[in-house]
Simulated scan of single mutants.
Amino acid sequence: MGSLSAWHWLIVLAAVLLLFGSAKLPQMARSLGQSARVLKAEARGLKEDEKSATDQGQDKLEPGKPSPQQVDDKQRDDPKN
């Protein structure tokens, strides 16, 4: 159960060529590359969104401190006001 030798890789490559054909392999590689680019762009967008939210002060609240929305809800529900 060690690593694969050059002969093993050659057999795997031949099997892939027989299964998919030489015309489909470049198309599959191109599709895989496009998918990787989309994934990277989405990950970059998420990081930028997180950074902008942190810069605006919308990051994590202090433990035990209610959010502004919770404070508004409590004031509205309080019959004393």
Rank of each mutant, 00 (worst) to 15 (best):
G2M: 07
S3F: 02
S3Y: 12
L4D: 03
L4R: 15
S5W: 01
S5K: 11
S5R: 11
A6Q: 14
W7M: 09
W7F: 08
H8N: 13
H8Y: 03
W9Y: 08
W9E: 13
W9R: 14
W9I: 09
L10W: 07
L10T: 10
L10F: 10
I11R: 13
V12Q: 07
L13M: 06
A14H: 03
A15I: 10
V16M: 14
L19T: 15
L19Q: 11
L19D: 04
L19M: 08
L19W: 11
F20L: 13
F20V: 11
G21I: 12
G21W: 01
A23V: 14
K24A: 15
L25R: 13
L25V: 14
L25F: 07
M28A: 11
A29N: 02
A29C: 05
A29Y: 02
R30C: 01
L32M: 09
G33L: 12
S35L: 09
A36K: 08
A36I: 09
A36L: 12
A36D: 11
A36F: 04
R37G: 01
V38M: 08
V38W: 04
V38G: 01
L39C: 04
K40N: 10
K40L: 09
K40P: 01
K40I: 06
K40F: 13
E42P: 00
E42K: 10
R44H: 08
G45I: 03
G45P: 01
L46S: 07
L46F: 07
L46Y: 05
K47E: 15
E48D: 07
D49Q: 15
E50V: 13
E50G: 05
E50T: 11
E50A: 15
K51C: 03
S52Q: 13
A53C: 10
D55I: 04
D55W: 05
Q56V: 01
Q56R: 15
G57I: 02
G57C: 05
Q58P: 00
Q58A: 11
D59F: 06
K60F: 07
L61S: 06
L61V: 04
E62M: 04
E62G: 02
E62F: 08
P63M: 00
P63N: 00
K65W: 02
K65D: 04
P66R: 03
Q70M: 13
Q70L: 07
Q70R: 15
V71M: 07
D72N: 08
D73F: 05
D73M: 12
K74L: 11
Q75R: 14
Q75G: 04
Q75N: 13
R76P: 00
R76Y: 12
D78I: 03
D78E: 08
D78G: 04
P79F: 02
P79Y: 04
K80Q: 10
K80I: 09
K80F: 10
